[in-house]
Design a protein around this nucleic acid. Sequence first.
RNA 1: GUCCCCAUCGUCUAGAGGCCUAGGACACCUCCCUUUCACGGAGGCGACCGGGGUUCGAAUCCCCGUGGGGACGCCA
Length: 442
Amino acid sequence: MTVKTRFAPSPTGKLHVGNARMALVNWLYARQQGGVFMLRLDDTDVARSSEAFADGIRQDLNWLGLTWDKTARQSDRFGRYKDIFEQLKASGRLYPCYETAEELDLKRKVQLSQGKPPLYDRAALKLTDSDRTRLAAEGIAPHWRFQLLAEDTGWTDMNRGDVKFHGSNLSDPILFRAGSEPVYMLASVVDDMDFAITHVIRGEDHVANTAIQIQLCEALGGIPPVYCHLPLLRGAHGEELSKRLGSLSLESLWDEGIEAMAINSLLARLGSSDPIEPYLTLREATAGFDISKFGRATAKFDRVELEHLNARILHDLPYTAVSEKIQALGLAVSETFWQAVQPNLTKLSDLQEWLDVCGDTLQPIITDPDFIRQALALLPPAPWDNTTWGAWTKALGSKTERKGKALFMPLRQALTGKDHGPDMGVLLPLIGYDRVVKRLAV
RNA sequence: GUCCCCAUCGUCUAGAGGCCUAGGACACCUCCCUUUCACGGAGGCGACCGGGGUUCGAAUCCCCGUGGGGACGCCA
């Protein structure tokens, strides 16, 4: 049987690293199993969904390289859900409810204040035909709940092992609102069946939903897929990811010049017992991927760790792999320049720092004016090449009887304004004769 | 409040009663390499949440605490 997974975001916001992880894990599992990966846009909530967010999601996935073999959107399938509505109604498991959202909210608050779980009390089940006729006459369009069986519903989860929930601990879910508009719970189950999804890999926030979805799937005559619920990601200090959307949205990581493969590398292994390694391609990340290695504890996503990985990946990338991205960031960098500064970059956007060093506005650090004056006097004339620095410092060394750090550090600071950076031999010609003279003029 | 789940170095984790003076990876520190930084090489620091049991023996099993995560929506 061909494995088929899906990533099913709702286009109501931007993707963050938590979403990206679920997309990636589904993609990796499908690819590794020789299966199919599907992108499904869960946009049953028409009011909150937007085309702009849908585009953003597709862009983000493309950036990460998570290509999909099939795509669908739920708003195109309302006709199908309408058929299911009739089918479920005929089965007797669907019942109309007339409470307003406010009434339900109040009920929950009362239950909670009494220390009881906020479960739906099934009051609508006690309605008589004449009650319903009266309510309908008042013009109230009912919402429809699915009557859960009061029994254990269980499954063998790929991550959590045997899991079960008792129906009495769950509320009868609303499947259709305002007449017959489908909601997520219904559409998701129908789509998983219709598109023959074999493995549903998602966050553990869906664990309790799974019992409901299995009951629903079986009521529709389907066979539930295999489920895998991975723990959610938290921020480096245990904070909720969505609260940090500012810095952990894929969009902002792109803006910072973080490599897609750094994100993929981290996300493909974080929370598993396999070591996190810098992968240059998704193929490499797929090779050692083992979904059974994922644990059950909440893992923390640390930006610092991401940047370390990013640096390691950046140090291995040829100019051709980054030139387009550099342009997209609005920077102009030659291959020579790239090779010179590459080992000193953590993020692509760090290029600016070295561009400034080779620009006109740099503020030199002069620690020893007399020495700098001597250096200027011995500066070789242009044209320069990669041997100029060596010749210059050799001459300067014998003249001033300085060597080692005492010899080159004052020069590095005067010429770059920093005490670390690329090899001065290659950097010197990139700064250029005129700027060097200017920086050494004290 | 109720129902699930989890609890080992800073982080991700290995560990399924003796193989554990608890292993690895990343981070960190030191040294070597290097006319800086980085890379690379060699070392080092560093953890079983607490309390009770069970057992000859517990990181490992049980109970109770405590802590953390998730769920309980006409969102997904």
